[in-house]
């Protein structure tokens, strides 16, 4: 499968009162045509900054530095803001956690859906409306024709997220980046929306980058997974591989933290990861996970740790799982 999106050595830095915050620290990833890549990590690890950097939507003060950023053969890093806005919402669309950040409360659903198409394609208003109705029905909204005249605030949260998905699909994109699209929704509605996203992704053969903090969502949705920690990708692999044989101590620890009904013993403590995420302000040294890792050695705190390659399954650790030893003194 060929790549639709290629990101090499992406950095995002944000000036803050105490210095420079290194939110994304040199990450590489590739998204293949038609696949679902999940980027997973805990809050503050840099997931949203990564997606905004790819879309060219970073906050004004943020600095993006990237060795290569290619979408569908186009070098995005050299495009002007104007050229970028021709691609956004067109061949590459985004879905946010909070639908109201993308929906304008002052316009009807129909107007906003139609505008998304007429902005990028030479079609009549009538044709745009037809596509809007077609897609609203696709995302499971009944009596779609009537919904066109409604305003965003007249819809429930779940319906709004469905409208957002229809909006993203208007120009038949090759790639959708969805940042926590179901985090604000109730669990039954989350399952419905994810079910819908997966089936549409297959039907329209789009690539999907799904960003989430929830490893349960990842296991059920992704073809491949990239695990982020403190601004870096610490492990990447196919979903089956990564869940069956997590290679990075962080991934391994994270999987032990999640209670699974029917599997987790109720009379035993859950696994947990002691300590806190390091501050990303100022220059970073050594492995980002060193202060929480149960296998940390002196060597881990020096220099940088590279992503070791292993047949499509890579992880950022100085040691193979077999070579790891418990740390002598825990701090």
């Amino acid at each position: 499968m060929s790549a639709i999106l290629e990101v090499r050595d992406l950095h995002v830095r944000l000036p803050v009162a105490a210095g420079e915050l290194h939110a994304v620290r040199g990450i590489d990833f590739t998204v293949r045509r038609g696949e679902t890549l999940c980027i997973v990590g805990e809050s503050g690890c840099g997931k949203s900054m990564t997606s905004l950097a790819v879309m060219g939507l970073l906050p004004r003060r943020a600095k993006r530095q990237v060795a290569s950023l290619r979408f569908d053969g186009i070098d995005l890093s050299s495009l002007s803001e104007r050229q970028m806005s021709d691609i956004r919402g067109n061949r590459m669309a985004m879905i946010f956690q909070e639908p109201m950040t993308s929906l304008n409360p002052a316009y009807t659903i129909g107007n906003q859906l139609a505008e998304a198409l007429t902005r990028h394609r030479p079609v009549s208003g009538r044709e745009a409306e037809q596509r809007a109705v077609f897609l609203l029905e696709k995302v499971g909204i009944t009596s779609a024709g009537d919904r066109l005249r409604q305003y965003p605030h007249q819809l429930s949260g779940g319906l709004r997220q469905r409208v957002m998905i229809a909006l993203a699909l208007m120009c038949d994109p090759a790639l959708i980046i969805a940042d926590e699209p179901t985090t604000a929704l109730d669990v039954t509605i989350q399952a419905q929306i994810l079910h819908l996203l997966v089936s549409l992704q297959r039907e329209f053969n789009m690539a999907l980058v799904l960003i989430t903090h929830d490893l349960g969502v990842v296991a059920r949705v992704a073809n491949r997974v990239a695990v982020m920690y403190a601004g870096e990708i610490v492990e990447v692999g196919t979903t089956a591989e990564l869940f069956a044989r997590p290679m990075h101590p962080y991934t391994e620890g994270l999987l032990r933290c999640i209670p699974i009904p029917g599997r987790t013993r109720r009379d035993e403590p859950l696994g947990s990861i002691a300590g806190l995420v390091p501050s990303l302000i100022g220059q970073q040294h050594g492995c980002g996970f060193a202060n929480r890792c149960e296998y940390v050695q002196d060597a881990c705190r020096e220099g940088s740790v590279l992503l070791g390659m292993e047949a499509g399954h890579a992880y950022r650790c100085l040691f193979t799982p077999e070579a790891r030893r418990p740390a002598e003194v825990r701090s």
């Binding site: 079910h195 997966v198 349960g216 990842v218 949705v221």
Partner: peptide
């Protein structure tokens, strides 16, 4: 039953189940 089906445990291969709950809220 719907709540239970919607619990997405980290078990690959199970996919996201269809809950047949419709879109009204």
């Amino acid at each position: 039953k719907a709540l239970l089906a919607s619990v997405l445990t980290p078990e690959p291969g199970l996919g996201v189940p269809a809950t047949d709950l419709g879109t009204s809220f």
